[in-house]
Amino acid sequence: MRAKIIEILFEKMKEDDKIFFLTADMGINMVEKFEEHFSNRFLNVGIAEQNLIGISAGLANMGFKPFAYTISNFAITRCLEQIRNDIVIHKYPVTIMGTSTGFDNAPLGPTHHIIDEWGTLRGIPGIDIYCPCSIQYASNILDNVIKNNSPAYIRIPKGQPNIKKSEKDLYFSKGTENEKILISYGPIGMNCLEVQKINTKINVLLLNKLHPLNSDQILNYINKFKKIWVVEDHFPQNGIFNSICEIIAKNRIVKDVKSIAPSDYTLKVGNSPNYFWSKYSLDVEGIISLIA
């Protein structure tokens, strides 16, 4: 999805001379053409993420629409105060594009397991958070953030899932019974859809926009089903599990809602995301066993 989003951004830059692309020395064989074609609107700021965010804020002050690109933990958790003070408090239309999310960088150790970042950011009001579950949504995401003209974070998982008709913020796949629903996002969404193929009774709701949520729409889905599982490659206490519980509590309803998610950082190495998906029951088999 990263390549798709970057390709679309390149096309947008041809039409909109206010778009400015910045990288913190990431994106080999991908960002070079930006420098070649848009030398006045491209910066590689080096391995200096605080500067990446600060410069983006300054460019927004000058009327540009900056898109700042790097690995998501460097962008979000390292620069949280720059995002809060220099972008969000000033309402600058800076879009942060963070890659290598969840367990995408599985073998690289706990510093690169990015299972906490968007929930941390969610505590700051005034920034929209997206995580495309499909190539279809990824294709439209820049239209959304450019139109909104406000701070945004795009959590970009690896992979190119093909999910037809998933262009909207919510994607619902109906099961044959109204008892159980899985709520998920990002690459785990595909696992949930695989679960549904095996057990067609299951309903699946995938979120492309993580924050803020359209509570009314979500509530409609919550009300329809008896048992809810929130499945995510992120800690539940500030992830979508927390958001769903918040909606339930605010609306004073009683629901059976459970989390399937990582519980802590781990020093164990996994050669691919599958290792951690299996460890935390985020894979197809794990989900099936927990919802049985």
Partner: peptide
């Protein structure tokens, strides 16, 4: 850093 962003924007 924000000031630098402005200066870079001005240069652009």
């Amino acid at each position: 850093s924000v000031a630098l962003g402005c200066a870079i924007g001005m240069r652009s």
